[in-house]
Design a protein around this nucleic acid. Structure first.
Length: 545
RNA sequence: GGCCUCAUGGUCAAGCGGUUAAGACGCCGCCCUCUCACGGCGGAAUCAGGGGUUCGAGUCCCCUUGAGGCUACCA
């Protein structure tokens, strides 16, 4: 076979050899244990939580080993490309504080020695290796009609079910030079396929950092290396880029396990040393039948990382939740180190859980409550304002104009408290939570049976009302009045004989609370009164139910 | 259909041949308490099923079942 001649026919303009390329990408000098890994997203227009999960695992792997993390944009699928999608990726990563040692800036400048870090700019490199494979008879041009799209796959599946042939050799795999020339002279475009050496009977073993030893049927398919548009699909680009860029560990989704044998054969054909794989489980949701399904951007708003910004979750809440999913040892560590930043938590690759976890919003909220509880009033205010500026601008203005007041609101049961409140898990809920601060109540959660008693109590209370200077003073005043009006101030006595009283101290406080906040529940009333000021408090207490 | 992965309470999970089978979220009860929240104490709830191996199995092996993934010139 005239492999060399065929290769020359296919790629007359390619003059470089793989050796030339390798000279431009020298081997990284690494210390023992240092991990070089990457995040390699496709620009699809949104950052999916599953993708981000991988980015976060890679980030931690690199960080924990003092290694290197780089960002590579995998924009080889023309059909899926979305405008501005790159910006979305960069935006999300930056907000979450995922920093890369090497990447390409948005305006196209490569930071790092192994670029370009965008696959569509590496076409020339891929061609050199494609040509080499053809020369060696490891790959061949294919002139068949494109098969693409899910429908074709489904059709293919139907017919293939009943074939007992294990291998999938392509009809073009043994085209002669003359035949190839005829196609080329016709101006036909071609794809390059791997000429698999396997017959479908071979088995292959490989090691996965999460799953351990894995065994599967070796690849026996002449899969596509370069599409007819000249751009390689995932496998070929992966093998070449991760080799040239010196990746030591590739973190990717579990769905790639099935194609790993193909990737391994490709590494071998290219003469590359295989890299290590870390196939992480997919984040799932429960469907209506109680089954797991991949969390999806279509049905689950929380699949899109922007969701957390819109709702105003602190980035640390999301990150700590993800960390908890990666390794539940984090939870114990967090309990023992309540004040340390999560960055200090170290884990190894082997600690990563192998099971697809169900996304649990309730758990995220709990983690987030604790994250927010660690903030001071001032920090909370700053974060609240920062969030409002982006997602509720008119409200942000109000916050800014009343900074002192709202800082106090944020500090309620928080600054100086040994057990801070844990009732807020994102910034978007705060407006509703503190609605009584912004405006007088428009509705009151008072039981209708209590109307008369409440009116009586409040009018008496208002008669002698003066702004208290301490919580104790305030509460003593309330108790004194309550007792005078026939309320039980000893709750045990009240419980023994409730009919002997109009109510207890709690009831009396409820009247004040509902008048001031509209709600039956609130943080410390004394603090709220201080924030609102005497005039406003009096005005609210004068309300008639 | 074939190939692959996974399987401990409702959820996240510890466990690496001998444990009263940790812990967290959620749920329930009690205590604290001006309400809520916080905090404290307690409770219900798990080894998918069946075979082996072993003195001994959640842990090792096999089968079954269930769930998920792949089976594209998508990643």
């Amino acid at each position: 076979m005239d492999y060399k001649k065929i290769a020359q026919l296919l790629y007359p303009d390619v003059t470089e050899t793989p050796e030339d390329i390798f000279k431009r990408y020298p081997r990284r000098q690494l210390k023992e244990g240092q991990v070089v890994t990457r995040f390699a997203p496709s620009p699809t227009g949104l950052m999916h939580i599953g993708n981000f999960f991988q980015a976060f695992i890679s980030y931690n792997l690199a960080k924990n080993s003092n290694g290197i993390l780089f960002l590579r944009i995998e924009d080889t699928d023309e059909k899926r490309k979305v405008k501005e999608a790159k910006a979305v990726i960069y935006d999300v990563l930056e907000r979450f504080g995922i920093k890369f040692d090497e990447y390409q800036t948005l305006d196209g400048k490569d930071i790092g020695d192994y670029g370009p870090y965008v696959q569509s700019q590496r076409e020339g490199i891929y061609k050199v290796f494609a040509k080499k494979l053809v020369e060696e008879g490891c790959a061949f041009p294919c002139f068949c009609k494109k098969t693409e799209g899910k429908e074709d796959v489904l059709k293919l599946r139907e017919t293939k079910f009943y074939e007992d042939d294990e291998k999938e050799y392509d009809p073009c795999r043994d085209l002669s030079y003359e035949e190839v020339k005829k196609h080329i002279d016709n101006g036909e475009s071609f794809a390059i396929r791997l000429k698999t050496k396997n017959t479908g009977k071979e088995r292959i073993k490989f090691y996965d950092l999460i799953k351990g030893e894995l065994e599967a049927k070796a690849n026996a398919k002449d899969f596509v290396l370069v599409k007819s548009d000249g751009i390689p699909p995932y496998a070929f680009a992966h093998a070449i880029d991760d080799t040239l860029m010196g990746t030591t560990v590739a973190v990717r989704g579990e769905e790639y396990i099935s194609s790993t044998p193909a990737h391994l054969e490709l590494f071998e054909a290219l003469g590359f040393t295989p890299i290590k794989y870390c196939h992480n489980p997919l984040i799932c949701k429960m469907d209506e039948n109680g089954n797991r399904r991949k969390i999806s951007k279509r049905y689950d708003p929380e699949a899109n990382m922007m969701y957390y910004f819109e709702k105003g979750y602190p980035v640390d809440s999301v990150l700590e939740y993800l960390l908890n999913m990666i390794n539940s040892g984090f939870e114990i560590w967090r309990k023992n180190n309540p004040d340390k930043p999560w960055q200090e938590f170290k884990f190894g690759i082997n600690d990563i859980t192998a099971v697809a976890p169900l996304f649990d919003m309730v758990k995220l909220n709990d983690i987030s409550k604790n994250v927010i509880a660690r903030q001071s009033g001032e920090e909370l205010f700053a974060n609240w304002l920062f969030w409002a500026k982006e997602y509720d601008a008119p409200f942000a203005e109000i916050l800014e104009k009343n900074k002192a007041k709202f800082t106090k609101v944020c500090a309620m049961d928080r600054d100086g408290a040994t057990k801070p409140r844990k009732d807020i898990y994102n910034y978007s809920m705060m407006k509703d939570n503190f609605d009584y601060i912004f405006s007088r109540p428009t509705s009151y959660e008072l039981d209708s049976a209590d109307t008369d008693k409440a009116n009586e109590f409040l009018s008496e209370y208002l008669k002698t009302f003066a702004m208290p200077s301490s919580n104790v003073e305030w509460f003593e005043g309330v108790k004194a009045l309550a007792e005078k009006l026939g309320y039980a101030i000893d709750n045990k006595l009240y419980k023994q004989n409730p009919d002997a009283y109009k109510g207890n101290t709690a009831k009396a406080c409820e009247f004040i609370r509902v008048a001031i906040t509209g709600h039956k529940n609130s943080p410390s009333l004394f603090t709220i009164m201080q924030i609102l000021g005497e005039d406003e408090v009096k005005a609210r207490l004068s309300h008639k139910f």
